[in-house]
Write a protein that binds this DNA or RNA. Structure first.
Lengths: 251, 251
DNA sequence: CGCCCTATTGATGTATCTCAAAGTGCGTGG
DNA sequence: CCACGCACTTTGAGATACATCAATAGGGCG
């Protein structure tokens, strides 16, 4: 299966497992608590089994493992099922940047469709699992089922919007504003998933956050400290508690 | 038709025509020199007429006109047919940022699919024309024609990649590198369209470029001047000639 | 349970922004 | 088609937000 190819791996050295030893348990997605997120919104009863039969397997990925690497041939889409992951893109000179944080229900790998090759890598931030969706099967199903087609289009369009918004963050906001926007984004997405808006475990390092937000890890750390002093948040390492959501919004 | 909604218009004051007076000539796209770009790669002969009948009308937009505005209901996709356009997104506090430069053949409006409403605005940088593609008809056609489905998926995936790349530009590169990357990008896209790699008329203002690149117009101007002194480019206002492409690449 | 990755905080440097003032050229209207 | 005016561009000097370098402290994971 998908052989790992060239990719700087400076950001994942903390994984002591060899890539070849990736634990890959593969189970039906049917017992998946977040099954509804794997795609099927709006499908009729008789369409659902088709989906499950065709396209929904799960794979475990351990912290630091790649789901796919930049340069891998594109064969499957993935949906984060549990845990969290980041996507990382590399400039030719080796500089890397985190391009997204993916939580349960978020799609992974849409970038591969156009060239048949992944342009980014996806790395688990903690032990996680992802649903595997063979793209050809999905495409076929989209032609049979309008609801499925809608869902896929929506997912792609959502990613387009998400990325434009992040471009705005990177291009127009100050360091404080960026960090605040990021915390609010994670808070909201956590809430959407039925977890707390106010408290969450952010598995990214300060370096990951900095990379995602276009600033250094030191500035991220200083900003969080300042927010804490101002009584906006309470940050104990990776555990973030949002105290004054409104003030954060006003930035 | 689509009523204009709230949107700061600070960047389009140079258009002296009222929005209501937009000249909207609507012609068949069949006589369009860039018709192949409006979508149909890979369609069989008998599929092409279907496409033309269903979905390809053109609309003229004059410099400064909106093709759609943030907040407009999403009904159509567009493809730039001639000229060039920019997409602009607004933060709630009114700050605006250019999120893309669109040349002939580039799609517009994919952001609207997920919410049924455009999140960005599209503004013509010069007198231009766009093909209008009613989304419901396109969706229907994608279910009949695999080639069409592939094409749409590819377009969306390309935009996802393009935006990730721009995130890297904004998050990781210095001012010099950003400007160089932008010039190289425009040069390449110009070449792909059969025009010169080396010389092009960039209809964006320095302010637009700065907004797109996350820097001030002054820094853009200074950077271009410095590039010129170093013999990398020759910039006479909006007319850009690339002299030393290799050095620009090495940044 | 210990090591190393991660986080915090400080001091200093600098790339880029901001404010300002000319100069230029393009599009509009005559 | 030409001329005028306004928007755009250029360039400078000074201010600042953030990066960089550095050293210590903390905590999670193997």
């Amino acid at each position: 299966m998908l052989t790992p190819t060239v990719v700087s791996n400076s950001t994942v050295r903390r994984s002591s497992r060899t890539p070849a030893a990736n634990a890959r348990t593969s189970t039906r997605c049917s017992n998946c608590a977040m099954r509804h997120l794997c795609m099927p919104q709006g499908l009729t009863v008789d369409e659902l089994p088709k989906l499950e039969a065709l396209i929904c397997n799960a794979r475990s990925v351990r912290r630091g493992d790649f789901v796919y690497r930049a340069g891998d041939p594109f064969e499957n889409l993935f949906v984060a099922r549990s845990g969290s992951l980041k996507t990382v893109m590399a400039h030719r000179d080796g500089r890397e940047q985190v391009t997204a944080l993916r939580l349960a229900g978020d799609p992974l790998g849409l970038d591969g469709i156009s060239t048949g090759m992944h342009t980014a890598s996806a790395v688990a931030l903690e032990d996680s699992s992802v649903c595997i969706i063979p793209y050809p099967a999905l495409k076929h199903m989209c032609r049979e089922t309008g609801a499925m087609q809608d869902r896929l289009h929506r997912l792609m369009s959502e990613q387009i919007i998400r990325e434009s918004s992040q471009m705005m963050v990177l291009g127009s906001l100050s360091a404080d504003e960026r960090v605040a926007a990021f915390l609010l984004d994670v808070s909201e997405r956590n809430g959407q998933r039925g977890y707390s808006h106010a408290e969450f475990n952010l598995r990214m390092t300060r370096e990951d956050m900095g990379s995602y937000l276009g600033m250094t890890l030191e500035t991220v750390s200083r900003t969080l400290s300042r927010f804490q002093k101002r009584g906006l948040i309470d940050a104990q390492g990776k555990l973030i508690r949002i105290i004054d959501l409104e003030s954060l919004r006003r930035l």
